[in-house]
Write a protein that binds this DNA or RNA. Sequence first.
DNA 1: CGAAAACTGTTTATGCCGCATACTGTTTCG
DNA 2: CGAAACAGTATGCGGCATAAACAGTTTTCG
Lengths: 244, 244
Amino acid sequence: MAAKSDKGGGDLARGMDLLWGTTDRPSRGPKPSMSVERITGTAIEIADTEGLAAVSMQRIAAAFGFTTMSLYRYVPGKAELVALMIDTTIGDRPDLESVPGGWRERLAEWARQCLRLFVRHPWLLEATGGHRIMGPNELGWLDAALAVLADAGFPPVEQHDAFLLLNGHVRSVAQNITGADRLGVDEWSAAVGERLRRHGDRYPALVAAMRGGGYSQPAAEPLEFGLRCLLDGLEKLLSEAPGR
Amino acid sequence: MAAKSDKGGGDLARGMDLLWGTTDRPSRGPKPSMSVERITGTAIEIADTEGLAAVSMQRIAAAFGFTTMSLYRYVPGKAELVALMIDTTIGDRPDLESVPGGWRERLAEWARQCLRLFVRHPWLLEATGGHRIMGPNELGWLDAALAVLADAGFPPVEQHDAFLLLNGHVRSVAQNITGADRLGVDEWSAAVGERLRRHGDRYPALVAAMRGGGYSQPAAEPLEFGLRCLLDGLEKLLSEAPGR
DNA sequence: CGAAAACTGTTTATGCCGCATACTGTTTCG
DNA sequence: CGAAACAGTATGCGGCATAAACAGTTTTCG
């Protein structure tokens, strides 16, 4: 097979090599002043403190006192850099084997640790939005969850389904939590309440729920609520088809 | 209260007026050649066919044969335009009252119709990513779901929680479906399989699941699977606290 | 009735962004 | 030593949202 044929293929291959640590050092030429790791690290710092939108090639280069284009010696493009940011931030798979209790507790632990990641790095949600080719660490997290599900007795297809369900829930909760930071619950209630005062008749159930206090507190433990429903549902599924 | 104080407030107010149809026609000056509705409509068309990223002020204006800046006579900014796109696309709330069966079937119907929206307009998922101030139609969909939940016997706080759970699931499934269009299941399997061939020992559960066929078919009914788990969980919750 | 006010759409310009290309200078191997 | 391979720079392109000043049109009011 041709090593580097067209642009897209070459970039994808380079990106994958970077992700999986398959870097062969060139022998000639001056030594690099930077490294992919340092670049990725500062990019993550910027994203953590100023949001993903603030991560631009110029911004990163400026943090090093370098020109923008110098970064392209280390990284094929921004997409690949973001992929590196993601896999670096995600880090090693969680250790679920040592979690006391059954598969429910282990999945819950997976979800909690995953949520913690999203809360600590709010940009991660946005960065992992689309379908991507997963990095080694992301695959590790997937494997960790699948192992628990397999152990619980779910067949492969349902392992897949259940993982997507769990992952989706965590992402959903993360979105609510991190989004609420930007637009506070109070502002939201105020804005919606303002409109409800004028068009309340169109939204009777919403008005009733708000009067009943459903939107005054910031929903104490949204992760746990959904987790409970979800695990209950999975458990029922398991108990109804015990033969597998 | 001061009508239009600072910039942000004024823009927000204008945007809200546009969303809620509170537009008072000016009497003086030439008649507009465009309208917010037409602008929003073509923006939606562009997003449907070319994706949200293709929706730029210049692109929309070009579709009309107008200059970019002319759009700003109709819409305060791009954020407000996107808000209009969202609420227009969402459309009227679903009619759940006429759905046969109990609250489970009604919530399921809500989820299916919601998913259909996301599938038909893949950009909608991305556009509704962050926390926003909801438009009238979005509030309508919320109200429709809350009405069902209230009717089922959930207290206000749990109505909120359950809604977020359901909505999150739909969004999650939509993300998987629409994302899979871009990066097909085959490509994904191929890319992951390639890496697993080299590092398979790091991902035993994943290897096992793939061998077991968990990733060969594109997960027939991911919405229904999660829906079932989720509704089972909610039902259990309801049955365990029957007093409310 | 005529001028001022209000409104529409255009022109021009600013400051971001990712990135292609062409370049200078340095290091190391044959 | 000289050439190849590499490091980082300089410049510029096309695209983005949008601010500001402008010209033309229509209505309202003195």
